[in-house]
Structure formats: C-alpha cells, structure tokens
C-alpha cells in the first residue's frame, strides 16, 4: 500500500514538473506547444553538456533552464508570434519545430543513448521501505517549481500582467499591458521549465533525441483537463497520475500508460471544464 502511495505521489510530481511549462503557455496563449517535448530534450542535453564539463548540479539546472528559455524566446519571436490568429497552425508549426530540433540534436550529438550521472543515488528508508532517493527528491522539486511559479504569478508585476492577459486579453491591452511582451516572456518561461524538467528527469531516464516524446501526450491531456490553472494541474496530476499507477499495478503497465489520455478525454467529454471549477 505504501509503495503504491509513494509511486503515485512521485509519478504525480514528475508529471507536474513536465507539464507546468506547457500549462503556462496554454494559459496565456491558448495554444498547445507541440515543441514542448523537444524543449524537454534540449534541457536533458544541456544537462549532459553541463555534467560533462564538470559543472555541479546547482549550476546544471539553471543552465538547462536558460538554454530552454533562450530557445523558447527565439521560437516565440520567429514563429509563434505570427500565428496567434491561427492557433491550429501554431500547433503544426511548433510540431515542425519539434522535428527540426530533434534532427539537429541528432546531427550534433548522434542518435546514441547518452548517460548523465545522477546527483542523488541509492535508496532511502521510508517507514521500513527502501525507496529510490531520487524519486523522493522529485517531490521536493515539484513543490519548489509550484511555489516559485505561484510566487512569480502573484508577487511580481510581470505576474500581474500575465494573469491579466490570461483573464481577458482585450481588457489587459486596454489597461496598458504590453501583451506581446507578456507572451514572449511566458513562452520563454514555459520552454525554460520544459528544459528544466528535461534536466531533472535525466537521472531516471536516458538521454536521446526522442526522449521527450513519450511524456508529451500525458502532458497535453493533463493541461487540457486542468483548464489552465496551476492548482488544478496539481490536482489533475495527483488524480490521473495516481490512477495510472493503480492501473499499472493491478491491471498492466500498458493500459496504465494509456490511462491518463483516455481518462482525461472522457472527463473532458462529460465535463468540458475538466477539473477546473466552473
């Protein structure tokens, strides 16, 4: 029982870390960034380069974030900005960008699976149960991301503008909010978070040009079902991530892998606002 609870919470934490960047972009721009998986991959490779250079993890993580944010800002300025009036085209263009990034990573680093040494290894003893220390650390990481994020949105001027744009863009513009700047910063932030997530999962995962893709669908569905709010995303991750662990444990992991996508689609069909309050 305890194992399942720990599996569920750590899985939810991982899902939260991966989807939060997607969520902020969706919240502000109402588009789904299909290049999200590619930014996750970029972050992982940034971590790879960082650790190869012998940087400590305290520097590797900011490096990954900065790399992702720079890619994101560039993407917004060159591609996404021109497509706000065509949200479905924005999806396609970011998908194309994802392919391009994946191929560039392949050309630069090769297709081989690469390895990053984990900063925290081994297991810790929790209530008489040996459990992977790194997964436990991910819970803390998810909390830090959530707190930092909330602080940014509620405590800064930029956060205020961002929330204004999320609520009513026309009105915000009328009130003098520079919504194009908000979008640029948001997209950079979202991509940075994706890259940070990529760096954080490397010790559990492999580093290869397609590593981000398996996470993408779950992240999409979680963001859709959470309707663009951070607390709801946390709830969605815990509910659907928990369900995934339960199905994986008691039925089989293959069905478990589809749990989030299928449940989220059904939830949205029955209750279009998802887990958000009406």
């Amino acid at each position: 029982m305890l194992t399942i609870a720990l599996d569920a919470v750590t899985t939810a934490a991982l899902l939260f870390i991966i989807s939060s960047g997607l969520l902020i972009v969706f919240g502000v721009m109402k588009i789904i960034n299909f290049a999200h998986a590619a930014f996750v991959t970029v972050g992982a490779y940034a971590a790879l380069v960082g650790t190869r250079l012998g940087l400590p993890w305290a520097l590797v993580l900011p490096l990954a974030f900065a790399t992702g944010a720079a890619c994101g800002a560039l993407t917004e300025a060159t591609i996404v900005r021109r497509l706000y009036q065509r949200p479905l085209d924005a999806i396609l263009a970011t998908w194309g960008l994802g392919t391009v990034i994946g191929q560039l990573v392949t050309l630069i680093f090769g297709r081989e699976v690469q390895f990053v040494q984990a900063p925290i290894t081994g297991t810790i003893d929790l209530f008489g149960l040996d459990y992977s220390a790194y997964r436990i650390a991910m819970i803390a990481a998810a909390v830090i991301v959530a707190v930092a994020f909330t602080g940014l949105l509620s405590g800064t001027r930029l956060g205020l503008s961002t929330r204004a744009v999320i609520m009513n863009e026309m009105l915000a513009q009328g009130l003098g909010v520079d919504s194009s700047r908000v979008r640029l910063v948001t997209f950079a932030l979202g991509s940075g978070l994706a890259a940070l997530a990529g760096a954080l999962i490397t010790p559990l995962s492999s580093v290869d040009p397609n590593m981000g893709l398996p996470w993408l669908i779950s992240a999409f569905m979680l963001v859709m079902v959470s309707g663009g709010s951070l607390p709801t995303l946390a709830v969605s991750c815990i509910v659907l991530g928990g369900l995934q662990v339960i199905v994986s444990t008691f039925v089989n992991p293959i069905l478990g892998g589809l749990t989030i996508a299928i449940c989220a689609a059904i939830v949205l069909r029955i209750r279009p606002e998802g887990f958000a309050r009406a």
């Binding site: 194992t3 893709l213 662990v245 992991p253 293959i254």
Partner: peptide, 20 residues
C-alpha cells in the same frame, strides 16, 4: 511477467511489483 510500451520510460510500478 510485465511489459511497458516500447516508448515507455517510467518502470516504477513494475519495479515495485518486482520488489514485492
């Protein structure tokens, strides 16, 4: 005897079962 989809990368529930 447990399987994960080919592109799956999170083996946690299987490992928990293995340990049990």
């Amino acid at each position: 005897e447990e399987y994960l989809p080919m592109d799956g990368s999170d083996w946690t529930p299987i490992i928990s079962k293995l340990k049990a």
